[in-house]
């Protein structure tokens, strides 16, 4: 890649660190929430909002905007932090996450939060919703794209596979799903809870174009999104190989940090690690 792209990747990597810092701050302050799956989802959603998607925080209802739907709604802190940094609402709102009389609910609500496309939190709905948005795009002859992120455990749900059939039946090439393949859900490893492999073969047998990448490598994310947009007559699934808790050593691959926020010591350690990473990225 040329130096222009190196700059871009560095910029997005830095934004990702900033978002991770927001997430840790928010969850520490809220004393509840889901660190693991919020952290694994950061790099892909950052790349969508800060590079790939056509959207404008000043016009959240623009009918031509690209759409992003967070089907795994428990990663709300990631989306909130990104929307705030994009200017959809004041960054100060982030410190009221999960508090009474404040805007940012534990799970995304489209009614009350600018930039949120779908109310999620009950797993398994988002892909069907995204299908609806993609079908509307075809009906209205719009050229917007629809992106939806799924958890890997989430794909236990039967509704996901109903939606997978429908998306390929209707040839929704304006739809891209991103699978946060971190191999963990709540009760343990996805393969112990309810086997998902072979994920790649499953989705391709449902008629999807499948791309598999390192979900924390910005360059690969950028390239796969372009490739997905170019797909014709079928939806694309990007399998993001990720690490649950990514960026915080003691949270990485640790199932205990699915739904437990950092305590004071963990908060300090986490911020120290993220600050060090930020310094390193800024330095080079």
């Amino acid at each position: 890649m040329n130096s222009h792209n190196d700059e871009l990747i560095k910029k997005l990597d830095l934004i990702s660190v900033k978002i991770r810092k927001h997430i840790i701050e928010m969850l520490y302050k809220a004393k509840s929430g889901h660190p693991g799956g919020s952290l694994s989802a950061v790099d892909a959603i950052v790349t969508l909002y800060f590079h790939h998607m056509r959207h404008n925080a000043k016009k959240p209802d623009d009918p031509d905007r690209d759409r992003f739907i967070l089907s795994k709604g428990h990663a709300a802190p990631t989306l909130y932090a990104i929307l705030a940094e994009c200017g959809y609402f004041d960054v100060k709102e982030l410190n009221g996450l999960r508090e009474i009389n404040r805007m940012l609910q534990g799970h995304p609500v489209c009614q009350h939060i600018p930039g949120i496309e779908a109310s999620t939190g009950s797993l398994g709905h988002g892909l069907s919703f995204a299908n609806g948005v993609a079908l509307a795009g075809k009906l209205d002859k719009k050229d917007y794209n629809v992106y939806v992120m799924l958890g890997d455990g989430e794909t236990d749900e039967g509704q996901i596979w109903e939606a997978a059939s429908a998306a390929s039946h209707y040839k929704l090439d304006n739809l891209t799903a991103l699978l946060d393949r971190n191999f963990l859900q709540i009760d343990g490893n996805t393969e112990d809870v309810l086997r998902l492999e072979s994920v790649r073969e499953r989705w391709s047998s449902f008629g999807w174009k499948v791309i598999e990448i390192d979900g924390h490598d910005i360059k690969q994310i950028i390239e796969s999104l372009h490739e997905a947009d170019e797909g014709k007559n079928q939806p694309t699934m990007i399998i993001l190989n990720t690490v649950k808790g990514k960026g915080i050593s003691f949270m990485e691959n640790n199932v205990d940090f699915h739904g437990v926020p950092p305590n004071e010591l963990e908060y300090k350690l986490a911020m120290r690690e993220l600050n060090a990473l930020q310094g390193k990225l800024e330095g080079f």
Binding site: S32, G73, R98, E99, Q105, G106, H107, V109, G121, S122
Partner: peptide, 8 residues
Amino acid sequence: VGKDGASH
């Protein structure tokens, strides 16, 4: 249920 919000 508290902080998870109305969805839960």
